[in-house]
């Protein structure tokens, strides 16, 4: 019973990792950029939900929609201002810009809202039991919303025109634009969806761990990035799988081995995956063009 309980704990944190990893993987898939500012979008999303619930008194679901929208816009603005001018520049320039954007967002928030952690409003209370297994509503909500969004994303990518455009641009940007696909618009949409998902991830994360501070996105973003790499960066199902593997590995290590070994084991998995399959579990092997 304890084992299933721990599995649920792992799924809960893992599904949030997965949501955030999706943003990393989508952006990487389409512009080959590791968007380090993505972790900080989580933080921005949490702050938006915090203020919208506490100061404006909106319910959680409206706040989440607001955070999704605002962060989607923020993602697009960041892309337009910081990354687009560097699209033809060497990849390292864009990478360093991403780190710069991340530091900028953190410090703007630190100056505006002070570095002290703030309590996050109570979203949903209580537990329910399935047999002898006890699940909190927070956990159920987290897993539920994450799964829903992942399904929605799959539908968008596989079934809609926008999704088709995204797949085309990620395969070959030049050819896609020759076929009449608006590449800039597609990239913007990708950033918008990725950032929106990060905002929801942030809100769910804060509902489960109710303290918000300007640096909360840094470590969490890094772990989500590792999840994306384990799953195979660029692959959407890979990001989901990677997130769940990370979450479950963390919670099982804490429960059955030792909390001191958590990070060693999680990052150990990353090393093993990269040794065995450098492109990640579900990543495609890309042949170098010579």
């Amino acid at each position: 019973m304890n084992f299933i309980q721990q599995l649920i704990n792992g799924l809960s944190i893992g599904s949030v990792y997965a949501l955030v990893a999706l943003g990393y993987t989508m952006v990487y898939g389409i512009v080959k950029l590791i968007n380090f500012a993505h972790g900080d979008i989580i933080m921005v999303g949490s702050y938006i939900v915090l203020f919208s619930m506490k100061s404006a008194g909106f319910p959680f679901w409206i706040s989440i929609l607001g955070a999704f929208t605002l962060c989607a816009i923020l993602g697009v603005v960041i892309e337009r201002v910081a990354y687009k001018p560097l699209r033809q520049a060497p990849r390292i320039s864009a990478l360093i810009t991403a780190i710069g954007v991340s530091i900028l967002i953190q410090n703007v928030f630190m100056l505006s809202f002070k570095p002290d952690p703030r309590p996050f409003p109570n979203v949903i209370d209580g537990n329910f039991g399935i047999g002898s297994i006890n699940v909190s509503y927070t956990t159920a909500l987290t897993i539920g919303i994450s799964v829903l969004l992942m399904i929605l994303l799959q539908l968008i990518v596989k079934k809609t025109k926008v999704g088709k455009a995204m797949r085309a641009v990620s395969e070959d940007e030049g050819a896609a634009s020759l076929m009449g696909i608006n590449v800039n618009r597609t990239i913007s949409i990708t950033f918008a969806i990725g950032s929106g998902l990060a905002a929801v991830g942030g809100a769910l994360y804060s509902a489960a761990y109710p303290l918000v501070d300007p640096f909360m996105g840094a470590m969490f973003g890094l772990k989500a990035f590792v999840a994306a790499v384990i799953g195979g960066i660029g692959s959407i199902p890979g990001a989901i799988l990677g997130g769940l593997i990370m979450g479950i590995a963390e919670s099982m290590t804490k429960a059955y081995i030792s909390s001191q070994l958590t990070d060693i084991i999680v990052f150990g998995i990353l090393i093993v995956v990269l040794l065995v399959k450098p492109s990640g579990i579900m990543g495609k092997n890309v042949k170098e063009k010579v």
Partner: peptide, 13 residues
């Protein structure tokens, strides 16, 4: 647990 941890559910379970 360690300094950066935010999730304690495994230990608490």
């Amino acid at each position: 647990y360690s300094n950066s941890d935010k999730d304690f559910k495994s230990q608490l379970t």
